[in-house]
Each structure stands twice: as C-alpha cells, then as structure tokens.
Amino acid sequence: MAVTGAILVLFLIGHMLGNLKVFAGADSFNHYAEWLRTVGSPALPNRTALTIAEIVLGISVLLHMWAAVSLARRAAKARPVKYAAKRKSQASGYATHTMRYGGVIIALFVIWHLLDMTFGAVNPKGGDATPYDRMIAGFQPDRWWVALFYLVAMAMVGLHLRHGMWSAFQTLGLTRRPNVRRGLQTGAAVVSAALVLGFVAAPFCILIGVVK
C-alpha cells in the first residue's frame, strides 16, 4: 500500500507539472507530449521510457487495489457482528474515512480520463487530434459535466492523499516521534492541496475560457 502509493504520488506530481504546460500554449504542451514519447531517442527506441512508466504504474495500481481489497475483506471478517449504535469517530481526520469509496471514485475517474485524453474515445476531437486540442475540447462549457466530474475526482484525490501520504510513512515505520508524524501530516495536507490546485487549474481555466 505504502510503496505502490508512493510511486503513484510521484507520478501525480509529474503529471500535474506537465499539465501546467497548457498555460504555456499549444506548441509547448504538444511538444511536451511528444517529448514524453521520444525521451532517450535515438539511443532508445521511441516510447521506451513511456512504456516502462506505463508498466510500473499499471502494476502499482493493481497492487494498490489488491492491498486495499484484502484490507477491506480482512476488516469485514474481523468484525462479523456490527455495532448497533452508530460508531462515532473519535480521531480527527475526515479524509481517513473517504479512502475506500474515494478510491473507487478515483478508479472510475482514471478509466474515463484514459478514454477521454489518451485514447480520445469519449473526447469530441477523437484520438487523432493533438493533445492540446483534445484537452481544450474536453472541457468546453457545453461539456460542463465533464469538468464537474474532474473537479469531484480531484477533490477525492486530494482527500486520498491527505491521509495516504503521511500514512505511508507510518506503515513503513518512519514516524517514530510525534513531531515527525505531525510534520508529515501537515506536509501531506500542503502537498495534496497543491496537487489539487495544480490539477484543477487547467480544466477550470478552459471552462471559463481563459485558455483557448
């Protein structure tokens, strides 16, 4: 959970920074997308780095989901008789309670997102358009519900990371002092907020017409 989650967080940071290229214009954004495919060329065949990244990320997602499902199943088995009274959370942390259903929402979002931006299957411009055109077309005001879905999904990603990022350190036994844990909890809040803002910036600015 911790290790695969860490890989996925690193990917998200890279992805978010890449997205911000949309503000630098169509050429910059498309060139960046092209660079991802040709990095290492001509020493390496095209798409080498990208394919490796795709395999690592794919395996990470599957292992992360497998770990989540086995933890949920163990939890269900560990408490066969539920409490009659509604269990009141005593720990602070709303994010903690969104991990399981939030993870499902994020998984559904990733499927839509790949169909939309990678394969173009549900994108108005289709898969043959440039990445920049696909992105602009994807978030036009007449498709406001797509942008809304992206915003909800990003809020879920933020909550997921709010708990997940410091929790990974705890799982790996690196939070042996209270001040270290509190520092990491604050860090997780800051990084997840920065990621959400970075991700939401592009769809929002396209929606309101700032980026065309």
Partner: peptide, 14 residues
C-alpha cells in the same frame, strides 16, 4: 483474526 491497520487513529483516540 484481527484486521489490518490503515492508520485511522481511532485506537489511540479511545
């Protein structure tokens, strides 16, 4: 047969 820890912090709160 106990469950796995997901760092919810409910334990230390009670």
């Amino acid at each position: 047969g106990f469950g796995g820890c997901t760092n919810t912090g409910e334990c230390t709160a009670v």
